[in-house]
């Protein structure tokens, strides 16, 4: 009898602890939902409009070969604007490289930088970018009106700018492809539109 009572008390205590754990998990999910909503690459509202033809220009890459940017071609283009002096750009390079590798069949990744040539060389050696298309030209950044780094722009194979934004994490980068897929300028805009459509549907 004594043993049963002890076991019963123990079970109640453990059940209470378990219920606390479940409630804690639910709260954490709620907090995550609160933080997740404004996800996606931040779009600074200037420069080329999304879903419009991208500006076309030709720049020379590191070894002097001409690189066409913004023209219709076989593959889509991802322009990644970086600078050797920007630490977040460097932290994003592994993600960019993995995206380039995963989507090599449909996507050309272009690294667009600006600034001191020696620093560029160190960066390229450090991150093994010797084989990548690496353009050092302030013109590209000026044409696309890039004010902040790291910035990325996605141009589809018809030469239309599909998504762009300030990218600070792998999630932001992925959001560019997501917005390309969904056909909205930014993920925020997509969420906003779908919210409206939802609201309208309910009235």
């Amino acid at each position: 009898m004594e043993a049963l009572i002890v076991s019963n008390i123990l079970l109640w205590c453990l059940l209470i602890a378990l219920a606390f754990a479940v409630m804690g998990l639910v709260r954490q999910i709620g907090v995550l939902h609160g933080r997740l909503a404004p996800a996606g690459a931040l779009m600074v509202d200037k420069g080329v409009a999304v879903n419009e033809p991208a500006p076309q220009l030709t720049a020379a890459d590191r070894s002097g070969r001409p690189v066409n940017i913004g023209y219709a071609g076989e593959k889509a283009q991802l322009l990644f604007f970086l600078s050797p002096t920007c630490p977040i750009c460097k932290s994003l390079l592994p993600s960019i490289k993995s995206i380039a590798k995963e989507q090599a069949h449909r996507l050309d990744v272009l690294y667009v930088s600006d600034g001191d040539m020696d620093a560029q060389k160190t960066l390229i050696a450090e991150h093994k970018l010797e084989d990548a298309t690496y353009v050092v030209s302030p013109e590209v950044g000026m044409t696309y009106q890039i004010g902040k780094l790291p910035y990325a722009a996605l141009i589809d194979n018809a030469g239309v700018l599909r998504a762009k934004g300030l990218v600070n994490s792998r999630e932001h980068l992925d959001s560019l492809f997501e917005t390309e897929h969904l056909g909205s300028a930014t993920l925020q805009q997509y969420l906003h539109n779908s919210q409206h459509a939802h609201g309208a549907h309910n009235h």
Binding site: W12, I16, V22, M23, L25, I29
Partner: peptide, 15 residues
């Protein structure tokens, strides 16, 4: 104990 568990589960379900 029983009402505490019921309340916690209620709060979790509400969440």
């Amino acid at each position: 104990a029983a009402s505490a568990v019921a309340l916690l589960i209620y709060a979790a379900a509400d969440g």
